[in-house]
């Protein structure tokens, strides 16, 4: 059962990802990425990480990707016109790179012991539920949390400064 689910969503994720790089229109690419994100969210649920799964949808799909789509619409680009290709060689470099990267990753993973996924719990306090995330975030991981908030602040200021028109 779980394997079936995994294969379905993994196929969806990989398919969307391949579509992402295959498409010339950025809007299709963005929508493909949303597909990948949704598939990953489903996979997170199978890993008993409900909260992260929900956040994946709310933050990634609901906010970040909307921003992307928004910008794509704002710039209203048409097809990615074929131009004079400046770095044709990169295209041929990418394939061996990808092969090597994949090979290395799989080589690393070959030793992974296939331990069992702990059984999920309906408890509100199970790992992956909201309570555990919140508790850890505001105790052990408080400093990263605060630093992240500062990062967000910097990003807000930076984005405003960058996107503001000179005359505005």
């Amino acid at each position: 059962m779980e394997r079936v689910l995994f294969i379905i969503f993994a196929a969806a994720a990989v398919g969307s990802a391949l579509n992402l790089i295959a498409q010339r229109n950025p809007m299709y690419s963005a929508l493909s990425l949303i597909g990948t994100l949704a598939s990953l969210s489903a996979l997170y649920v199978t890993l008993h990480a409900q909260f992260v799964a929900a956040m994946q949808i709310i933050v990634y799909a609901g906010a970040i990707m909307v921003l992307f789509v928004f910008v794509i619409m704002l710039l209203n680009l048409q097809e990615d016109q074929p131009r004079i290709e400046k770095q044709q060689w990169l295209r041929y470099l990418a394939v061996p790179f990808a092969a090597a990267l994949m090979a290395e990753a799989l080589y690393v993973f070959r030793n992974v012991k296939d331990i069992r996924l702990p059984a999920g719990s309906d408890s509100d306090r199970a790992v992956g539920a909201t309570w555990s995330i919140g508790t850890s975030l505001f105790t052990d991981y408080l400093l990263p949390f605060e630093v992240t908030s500062v990062l967000i602040l910097m990003a807000i200021v930076g984005a405003i400064v960058l996107a503001r028109r000179e005359d505005g």
Partner: peptide
């Protein structure tokens, strides 16, 4: 591409 190459080499070294 250079960054990826560097990553490949570093990972390769540890592998």
């Amino acid at each position: 591409a250079m960054v990826v190459l560097g990553a490949l080499l570093i990972i390769g070294y540890f592998v």
